[in-house]
């Protein structure tokens, strides 16, 4: 019982972070119909930006986080301006390939700046590593902070889409790009901000995850796979679906590791993707519609 509750708590915490990664993937996919394969590397850049500001420049945690999220937003916008926007006219496959190119470039940049010889950088813990007891459940205070912060990011994100003008423009563009252009929305600019927002969410999930794990230039891909599994499970176009998918992937992964074997932990995301595609091709909350690529 104690083992199960520990696994569930850990699963929910990492699941909430996967949900954030999935959220970024879904937002970009919904608006542009492109799966941003550089999303994991944007996550990695966000983590290293926070590391640089917090550990190397010695800024306090909160300003480092905010600056890292802002920096990720800027990198997302830059990738759109440099690579994606000029290729939009050539079709989605070109943009998809460009996202792979961007992922390699970002990884290369990270290796030059933050160590390319398998260095693993440790991010200092946020709060004392003492575990807390809530009822019968033991929880690391660190995990609790991360979980609450992840929920806060999701709420801010939902509020942004539901209430702000920019959020509504993004929703409208995702829903019907032609009609969006005809009401006067600058569609390519909305795409640019969408890539920025996606990257900012990736950065936010990275700074939350950094204290729980180690940072290295190749961290992006495994994280992307987990987030992508969560997004596919949720239907790829649904924000609540991405959150549920993230939590499910996180919990399944921990249960698989705890009851079957740790070797299966990292493969479990692939298994989830496989079963989701076979049995739930439109995801838990996805829309039934035609696929364009």
């Amino acid at each position: 019982m104690l083992v199960l509750s520990y696994l569930l708590v850990t699963g929910i915490t990492t699941g909430a972070l996967y949900a954030l990664v999935a959220l970024g993937i879904v937002v970009v996919y919904k608006a542009t119909e492109v799966v941003n394969l550089a999303h994991g590397e944007l996550f990695m850049m966000g983590g290293f930006l926070a590391y640089t500001l917090h550990v190397m420049v010695k800024l306090p945690y909160v300003p480092s986080v905010l600056l890292a999220v802002a920096g990720s937003f800027a990198i997302g916008i830059l990738t759109d301006r440099v690579a994606f926007r000029p290729l939009m006219k050539e079709g989605l496959v070109s943009v998809l390939l460009a996202t792979i190119g961007i992922s390699f470039i970002l990884k290369g940049v990270a290796r030059v700046l933050w160590g390319g010889k398998g260095d693993y950088l440790a991010f200092p813990p946020l709060v004392s590593p003492e575990p807390m007891r809530i009822g019968n459940v033991m929880i690391m205070s660190q995990q609790l902070v991360v979980l609450l912060a992840a929920l806060a990011v999701m709420l801010v994100f939902a509020a942004f889409f539901k209430t702000t003008r920019a959020g509504k423009f993004m929703q409208a563009t995702a829903s019907n790009p032609k009609a969006a252009a005809l009401v006067g929305i600058h569609v390519s600019r909305v795409y640019m901000y969408t890539f920025g927002v996606g990257a900012a969410v990736a950065g936010a999930s990275a700074v939350l995850m950094a204290p729980l794990t180690l940072l290295y230039p190749d961290i992006g891909f495994p994280l992307f796979i987990k987030g992508f599994a969560a997004a596919v499970l949720g239907g790829l176009t649904s924000v609540p679906g991405a959150i549920i998918g993230g939590l499910l992937v996180g919990i399944l992964e921990q249960l698989a590791a705890g009851f079957i074997g740790t070797a299966i932990q990292d493969v479990s995301a692939f298994i989830v993707i496989m079963f989701a595609l076979i049995f739930l091709p439109t995801g838990i909350l996805g829309m039934r519609g035609t696929r364009k690529i």
Binding site: K168, Q171, A172, S175, N176, K178, A180, V183
Partner: peptide, 19 residues
């Protein structure tokens, strides 16, 4: 028509005032 199907009537009108 091409209305924004997932959005409310009110939000459709607000987005209509994009400029």
């Amino acid at each position: 028509r091409e209305v924004f199907a997932d959005m409310t009537v009110q939000d459709n009108l607000e987005v209509g005032a994009a400029v």
